[in-house]
């Protein structure tokens, strides 16, 4: 659980937990089932390659490791952004938010490059059940990262409207929860899809 000193200006709740944070936790619980179902589909189909290329033909583990590292580092910058806003340093917060968004964007760029390479090597959405489940699972993860980037930009806009500060850090914290979750899901996807050999 995340740290628990609820900001003073928010109304007390029955449990003392902040409403928005509780809502985000509930939503993330739901997301576990979402990704869980896609991962199950992938596990069912990872060897159903038909005439198309197999995962051993395609995966470039060093390359994906680097882009995974980039994504995980974005969790660090996200934490620094939250820490900055709680300390009242809004300029540092904006810098860390933009850094987080930039790292996320780098990851997305890496994914676009990876997808393009795979298509050139003969794996498309329609090639095989393996292709469908790979692209849709990792694509939905990429979509989650993209939405996260939009939310980070939203926070930056909010801050330029004069919102967000030591007394009003909750939105940063909630977006941070989402961002860390998306990163954690990637650890699972990276392990299950790339590191466990097929066959």
């Amino acid at each position: 659980m995340s740290a628990a000193h609820p900001p003073a200006e928010h109304p007390h709740t029955s449990t003392g937990l902040d409403n928005a944070k509780l809502a985000m936790w509930a939503f993330l619980g739901s997301e576990c089932l979402f990704f869980g179902s896609f991962i199950s589909t992938y596990l069912l189909y990872r060897n159903v390659t038909g005439d198309g290329p197999t995962s051993a033909d395609l995966y470039d583990i060093p390359y994906t490791s680097i882009s995974s590292f980039v994504l995980l580092m974005s969790s660090l910058t996200m934490v620094l952004a939250l820490s900055s806003v709680q300390n009242g340093d809004r300029r540092a917060m904006r810098i860390w938010l933009m850094a987080t968004a930039f790292l996320g964007l780098t990851f997305i760029g890496g994914q676009v490059f990876e997808f393009t390479t795979f298509v050139e090597e003969g794996l498309t959405l329609s090639t095989s059940a393996f292709g469908s489940s790979f692209f849709v699972l990792t694509g939905f993860h990429g979509a989650h990262v993209t939405i996260g980037i939009l939310m980070l930009l939203g926070l930056t806009v909010m801050s330029s409207f004069g919102r967000l500060g030591p007394d009003d850090s909750r939105p940063v914290e909630v977006v941070g929860l989402y961002w860390h979750f998306v990163d954690i899901v990637w650890i699972v996807i990276f392990t299950v899809i790339y590191l466990i050999p097929s066959g």
């Binding site: 069912l44 189909y45 038909g50 959405l125 329609s126 059940a129 292709g131 469908s132 849709v136």
Partner: peptide, 14 residues
């Protein structure tokens, strides 16, 4: 819509 093969038995789907 996009020609994926999640459910088509002809493509080996379950």
């Amino acid at each position: 819509l996009f020609g994926a093969n999640f459910f088509d038995p002809a493509a080996g789907a379950d």
